[in-house]
Amino acid sequence: MVIDSQKMQSLAAATAREDIAGRSLWADARRRFLRNKAALFGLLLLVFVVFFALFGNSLARWSNDEIDFAVMGQAAELGGPSLETGHYFGTDDLGRDLFARTVQGTQISLAVGIIGSAIAVVVGTLWGATAGYFGGRIDNLMMRTVDILLAIPYMFVLILLLVMYGRSITMLFAGVGLISWLEMSRIVRGQTLSLKNRDYIEAARAIGVPARTIIRRHILPNLIGVVTVFATLLVPNMILTESFISFLGLGVQEPMTSLGALISEGSGTIAYGTLWQLAFPLLFFVTTLFGFFFVGDGLRDALDPKDR
C-alpha cells in the first residue's frame, strides 16, 4: 500500500509537469535523413558548391571580364592552372581567368535551377491543389490547360523566345519558369486527389472550415513531402535545360557566363591541349547535379518511409 501510494504520488507529479513536446513527422524525417550517408554526402557537396558560388570571388585575383594580356593568344602554353599567375583554374583563349568565370557560371546555374524550381513549387502546387481539391469541371479545365502546354515542344518555344527578344537572363528565367510548373502541378493534383478523401479532410468539412482554409491548413502541409522531393530533383533538370540552351549559344550574354556556356567553350578548344577549360566547369557541373540528386533521393526516403 505504501509503495502504491508513492507510485500514485509520482504519477501525479508526472502528470502535473509542464507540456510534453511531441515529436512531429518532420522531426522523424530529419532523423532518417541524417542517418542516410549518401544524402549527407550530397548535402556536403551542395554546401561546398554554394559556398564556392557565394564566396569564390573573394579568393579570385582576377575578375571574370578582365583580360590577362600576358596569356592572350597563347592560352595553351601560358594559360594553364597555376598559383603564381593567380589563374587557379587557368584561363580561356582570350586570357580571362577561368576561376572567376567558373564562380560566376556556378552562380548563374544555381540561380536558374533554384528560381525555376521555386516557380514550379509555388505555381504548380497552387494550381494542382486547387484543381485536385475542387474536382469536376474546374479540374478538367485546369488540367487540360496543362496538357495543352505540355504538348508544345518547349525547347523550340524557348529558343524562339530567346531569338525574338534577345538573350537575357530575365528571358531565360521566364522561359524556364514557364515550363517547370507543369509536371509539378500534375503530381500535386494526383496527391491532392488521394488526400481529399482522407477522413481528416472530411472532418474539417464537417466542422465547416472553408475550402480555401482546408487547402491551406490541411492539404498543403501534407503535400510538402512530395513537393520538396520533386523540387530538389527538378533543380538539376533546370540546370541541365539552361546548360543545353547555353551550349547552343543562346543562354546568358557575355561577359556573364554559365556552366553550360563554359563547358561548350571548353569542349570547342579541347583539340588545342587546353583540357582545364573543360575540366573545371564540368567538375562543378557534375558535383552540383550529384549533390541535388543525392539530397533528393535522401529526402524521398526520409519523407515517405513506407514507399521503400
Partner: peptide
C-alpha cells in the same frame, strides 16, 4: 485517420 497527422 480523422486527425491530421501534421497537426498537434
Amino acid at each position: 485517420a480523422s486527425l491530421d497527422p501534421r497537426m498537434t
